[in-house]
Design a protein around this nucleic acid. Sequence first.
DNA 1: TTTTATTGACCGACCGTTCGGTCATAATAT
DNA 2: ATATTATGACCGAACGGTCGGTCAATAAAA
Lengths: 209, 209
Amino acid sequence: MPKFVDKEAKQLEIINAAMKVFARMGIVKTKMADIAEEAGIGKGTIYEYFRSKDEIFNHAFEMFFSEMKTVLRSISESDDDPETQIRQIIKASLIDFTSGNEEFMRIMMDFWAEGIRNKNETINGMLDLEGIYNEFRSAIASILNEGIRKGVFRQVDSNVAAATLIGTMDGLYLQWIVNPSVFNFEQAAGFLSEIFLLGIKIDPSQQQT
Amino acid sequence: MPKFVDKEAKQLEIINAAMKVFARMGIVKTKMADIAEEAGIGKGTIYEYFRSKDEIFNHAFEMFFSEMKTVLRSISESDDDPETQIRQIIKASLIDFTSGNEEFMRIMMDFWAEGIRNKNETINGMLDLEGIYNEFRSAIASILNEGIRKGVFRQVDSNVAAATLIGTMDGLYLQWIVNPSVFNFEQAAGFLSEIFLLGIKIDPSQQQT
DNA sequence: TTTTATTGACCGACCGTTCGGTCATAATAT
DNA sequence: ATATTATGACCGAACGGTCGGTCAATAAAA
């Protein structure tokens, strides 16, 4: 009997329960007892499936970003022209993942905050925020490089430009979470696409470094 | 009356000690005992000057951002033209405050993370991240409005544009903290100035919405 | 019956906070 | 000047609450 299949399913259930609680009360305030209750099992049972709270946390983190990675990869592997790809990335990151889904954003900021907190003392690659950023950045950078090669983008440092783009998206999330009423998120996403592309595209009438 | 001690001076000492410890071990991991040790006083003494750990935290937060507010205000009240003001703000935020001062950046990220975490349950306006952002955003927005009025900037939504600019700066901090080796911070700041201004400035040869 | 899974009462490390007591110093008295 | 007293800054042991993790008991399955 393939017990491990059941095991994985149960792990998933627990993680999903954990995610719900994370969204409701924030990651740090979430206690093992809360997760157990949400999952409808006893606290002890969790420890049959995970070694520790950190392990749950870690799994949730990975699961959370894996979809985003997948989407990003599919965009960057498509045949669309670089400008379209950039637009798609911005749209996917800022609109598709978030629209009407404040809960998603809150969890993301929470993970993000937790990643920073644990950054320089966590053992053994928990919360690999660094890896996630590297992956995102290099994917975007290679799109930019392609655009530069094709002559549609200016000769910018693609790594710096990618970091700037990612940074802007993160920063918008941050402000949105802190004060959602102040600006329209979709509008900001549109503005960002526009301004970023204006900034890096080659304008034949305007040659400057 | 025994020795007259300046209560405020001592409070300041304690906050400074706290800041040092915050930078060294992160805000959340910092214990009252650590602050006391760093300040060279007993744990109990701290409570002669602050009601609670949160109060220390709160004071430190306010102090931390007050200098930034001051600088921003002086820039936005100057007579320079809007483009110069924008450049100055980017320079001040990304370069002047941080250059060679990784510790500063780490504390700032920590404050952010903490501000987000506590956002929706903190009593009575601790950690007013919301207020800080509002102030920054409206200062930048009014510079942009001035530029639009003078006809040097396009008719963008100044609030959205300001949020985007702030977001970008925050996001660059974030990535820099997570992985400092990947891009040059000053270079990124320069790139940001360039691309943002390119994106919002009116280019006579290129009329588009 | 034996094995496996589940449980929640319990443990103990941790940490913010308290509080009774100490002591250097200043005020006052001699 | 010297002794006495009053003050409150300072201290850290102890307290109390919290929470991740354990394990003996129980239930379910085989």
